[in-house]
Design a protein around this nucleic acid. Sequence first.
DNA 1: GGAATAGTGTCTTTAAGACAATATTTT
DNA 2: AAAATATTGTCTTAAAGACACTATTCC
Lengths: 232, 232
Amino acid sequence: MMQDYDINQFKNPLFTVDSVLFTVIDSVLNVLMVKRLIEPFAGRWGLPGGFVDVDKDDNTDMTARRKLTEKTGLSPRYLEQLQVFSGINRDPRGFSVTSAYYALVAHQAVETRIETVEQASWISVNELPNLAVAFDHKHIIDIAHKRLQQKALYSMVPIYCCPDHFTVGQLKDVIETIIEKEIQRKSLMRRIESSDMFEFVDQKVQSGGRSAQLYRVKKDVSMANFERNLSV
Amino acid sequence: MMQDYDINQFKNPLFTVDSVLFTVIDSVLNVLMVKRLIEPFAGRWGLPGGFVDVDKDDNTDMTARRKLTEKTGLSPRYLEQLQVFSGINRDPRGFSVTSAYYALVAHQAVETRIETVEQASWISVNELPNLAVAFDHKHIIDIAHKRLQQKALYSMVPIYCCPDHFTVGQLKDVIETIIEKEIQRKSLMRRIESSDMFEFVDQKVQSGGRSAQLYRVKKDVSMANFERNLSV
DNA sequence: GGAATAGTGTCTTTAAGACAATATTTT
DNA sequence: AAAATATTGTCTTAAAGACACTATTCC
């Protein structure tokens, strides 16, 4: 029993933090990926992430944020733990553990920055199957996508893929892109109303037809969750 | 940029796996805790867990299971990742990371075994606030409890706190204990019916009044999730 | 006016809540 | 028969779906 507590007896596994940063561009869900410069898997695309720096990071959330900031120039508005992926076979260097996060950002907010960092790029989730991806990162993205889809059914998280001022039409498009199914505009409006998370921006925006009301998230509100899912 | 990938540059944080094993005994939610024998926090109660053994464990799920088996003599029927807890202050030895799991078991299945392992004990969640607990394990249990409560509202996971053959009344009691609120027996029966997860056991059991039908989980069914929550 | 998009009204559907009514078992 | 618990019947309620209708803007 003592051996359970002997800190030096076991090889400490390789521990990293990786993030799946999603954004919606032109009704397509995209993931931020970086071209790996060194082994293992040099030349392949991988998730932005890396090792904890115990001098800089208070915890792993900060590691995830720091790594994303290095790639995009900003901290994502939504960041949440996904799950741990671990095993003997996922990294050729040995038993490894990654604490995976998923995050959302409005592409408008980072677009210019991404373009200047040539190693980072938005990849459409539709192109992923044909891409050479490092480690089990394809699998991690798949799990993150499913989690995001589920969350979009009972919460307002997709707003974090919208700009600060957004229309119902924009939010509807983001949600439909994420869950890959159309939803009723009426249902969305009811949720916007009942969530009490949003306020009018005193401005409308034209869009080919009748101008649309702009909304923004109220100051210091928490994310609304609903008791029912939207239909799948 | 190269520094991000230099494996030797950073101190690898201390990595452990800890589990919150729940069971319901006499309408009270209990957590399995073990008395710590060595520092840090010797003498305090802590969650069952420990370091990954890369020679024995294929992944961290197995680490969680192995540690629980050492304490209870069996593998829990339900085991799921909770989240990672990390930081510079949670362990006096330095930056540490724990991948926390939560698990469910029917207390009938492990009762005798627990009694023989004097270092492990069921602790009622109501007694926890007054208990000297190691690390941030009190906080981890709290988060696990909330996650379990949420899950009980839209899934059948609480069945894993019931014995193999159970009655609707037993399941109702387990659910009510977890979510700390009464539910409608009718609603539960509708879910049992629509989930298609269960089958009759050809036997009834007396209980002070009319005998109750016994149910069991069908072979190879997956956990049912519902589109709505029970009311809170 | 017509096309396009935004927003509302309202009826239907679905699954949960409430609770009365019936069934079975023990004492 | 009374008490206790199990099970069913059925009406109500809450929130989503469907979809027609109105509103606004540009051409």
